[in-house]
Design a protein around this nucleic acid. Structure first.
Lengths: 353, 353
DNA sequence: CGATTCGATCGAATCGATTCGACTAAACTA
DNA sequence: TAGTTTAGTCGAATCGATTCGATCGAATCG
């Protein structure tokens, strides 16, 4: 039983045993074309006897030109990317949509770690969804078009022929900011998502803002600046609660202290609230906080005022676009809209200081 | 430019243009075998002119017998599976380990949704890592052995020839339970991970415990029962904070109320603590809580007493086992050990009631 | 100077299935 | 009954690259 040189049976072997030609056996297996019941049963029986487990996917995909695999490119390592519930929800959406054509997801990391997206070049992909992927986007796209592999980008500009699943980041953030202004806030701080692939943390300078490579962060920043042009900002190194905590401490220990903080994600917002609590500030009386995403942050006791984005729907839209591209259609870009959720973390600023 | 029938160039086309045979062109591309610098450059130049993007992965994998793809089977939908940080850490470990052979991860869901693991049968896999996968395990394994695809199972018994990455669930839980007993606890409640694929919630009966299909939950339960044979239990429907909250409420409103709760995961433990807070109980004075996993639960203010398991290492071990199997070796099963972390959520029970 | 080796290249077989067109025999129409 | 359809089967080409063994010219060696 432990001979290492066991060769698996091929369809031809099965056909030979069933007493028919390989072509007929193929027909019997795939269900395409007319095959008599008798023959089909003979083929199936032969297959069972030989322990034939069905056609080899490699050969099949060569011939068919399809592999049934859709790539998902994230530019982080797995553990980082999936700490963000938004990414998980989007992935889930993609997974759901492409499940309908029985495709599976290949996880590709194009990130800092590997200098070359090896797998993008060598994986048998039918199509690809790019999650943001700021930096490597251009190179990845040109690689894919050269290979003739259709792609969809979620939040990121990829040029004319690549459909994009976008979000109204700027408008949505502006709505949140206007909400704060209407409440009477004037000194507002902003916690910004990473602006560059190096994920450097620190104060937001005009220089950094200008050289940003990450569309999402830039757009949301613009939305906040539309209403509060002079708001101070701190750039976080990721969308994590801890980062929000650090950024929150920094913003809240400045003088004069802001009366409200716009965080570019709910996780950051939760961290900001934690920072406020640390400093003995009450939310929303002493500090109003607005988030973004609308994910439920485990362990946050507040009903966060935030912009709820349809993450799962975005993923599904991306998946559906893929399905349509594989069917030969040319889906167009879609922009999703966030909805403002007024929670319990925003209130008018305290009059007395 | 918009003709739909553009056929991509093949290696033969490139060879023809470079004035050599396909075999030589192949050699030039893959780096195998001796090729003169002049020829190599001609081939590369021709490739560039024709916009040839490198060998077709499908053809290559057919010939080579390898696809560079490792499957990861989870029996949930993506959004569920990745809510648990342990799974993410393990996935990250796998990803890291197999990255060394330039393989990528194919996400396969074998779960309740699809009645048949279509992709397991039809994906061009070199090897597979099964994450738990209680129910479908047997069928998946037999399918894979039939196909001749090596597999590794993380926490789940898969038979003799399949290496397993295990954890000392029972012993570790017992250590946590003994810690509680040493502190003087006698009335202990247990929050149990799902015991069956249907993820039914509810009180733990002997019947349910006996018919459990999930090794992890059963083993941890046994460890707790080793010390507290009569402890009451509640089965959660997943490893989430919310589930811990529900289970915690149930256990803590029983009479007599337990003085300590053993939760089978940190997320569940965090929920239990939340439930205690709701009821005005102080942790650890009124209630001791022990978790499992050692993940940092965002938003939990307590330093949780827990059993820290090396999730990422488990994943990496699985990945390394895969790498070795692909190299023709026969790695053996590995059992990892959890370490007890005494945090601030356990204390002696209050004497006065 | 003839024999041997070595490096570079090529031809042809191969990986395992799918698919198109051709062929046979049975069933149907006029 | 001759002519036409149709269901069932088969042969052969094809998908695109890899690889083994053979070949050929040039360089090395005795």
């Amino acid at each position: 039983m432990d001979g290492d040189t066991i060769t698996r049976p091929t369809l031809s072997d099965v056909a030979a045993r069933a007493g028919c030609s390989p072509s007929t056996a193929s027909l019997a297996f795939s269900g395409t074309g007319p095959v008599s019941d008798a023959t089909r049963e003979k083929v199936l029986a032969a297959a069972k006897e030989l322990h034939y487990a069905g056609p080899d996917p490699r050969a099949r995909s060569l011939r068919r030109g399809r592999s049934g695999i859709v790539g998902v490119v994230i530019d982080d390592r797995v553990s980082e990317a999936f700490r963000d519930p938004v990414n998980i929800a989007m992935l889930d959406g993609v997974s759901e949509a492409i499940g309908e054509i029985d495709a599976a997801l290949l996880l590709l990391t194009a990130g800092a770690g590997s200098d070359k997206p090896v797998s993008l070049e060598t994986a048998p992909l039918d199509a690809v969804v790019l999650f943001g992927c700021s930096t490597t986007l251009e190179r990845s796209i040109s690689m894919l078009t050269q290979r003739g592999i259709p792609a969809v980008v979620i939040e990121g500009d990829a040029g004319e022929n690549v459909p994009e699943i976008a979000l109204d980041n700027r408008e949505a953030t502006r709505i949140g900011a206007e909400h704060l202004r209407e409440l009477g806030h004037e000194r507002v701080g902003i916690v910004v998502l990473p602006l560059a692939p190096d994920r450097a943390r620190g104060a937001l300078t005009e220089e950094r803002a200008a050289s940003s490579a990450v569309a999402t962060a830039t757009e949301r920043l613009a939305g906040a600046r539309d209403v509060f042009p002079d708001a101070a900002g701190v750039v976080a190194s990721g969308s994590y609660l801890d980062e929000g905590l650090i950024a929150g401490r920094e913003l809240l220990t400045a003088t004069p202290r802001p009366t409200a903080i716009i965080a570019q994600s709910d996780l950051l917002a939760a961290g900001v609230i934690r920072a406020a609590e640390e400093l003995g500030l009450h939310v929303p009386e002493d500090l109003s906080v607005v988030g973004f995403d609308g994910v439920r942050v485990d362990g946050l006791d507040y009903d966060l005022t935030t912009l709820v984005q349809p993450s799962q729907a975005k993923g599904r839209a991306a998946g559906e676009a893929i399905v349509r591209m594989l069917a030969g259609e040319h889906p167009t870009s879609v922009t999703f809209t966030s909805t403002f959720h007024r929670g319990a973390t925003t209130a008018p600023p305290r009059v007395a200081d």
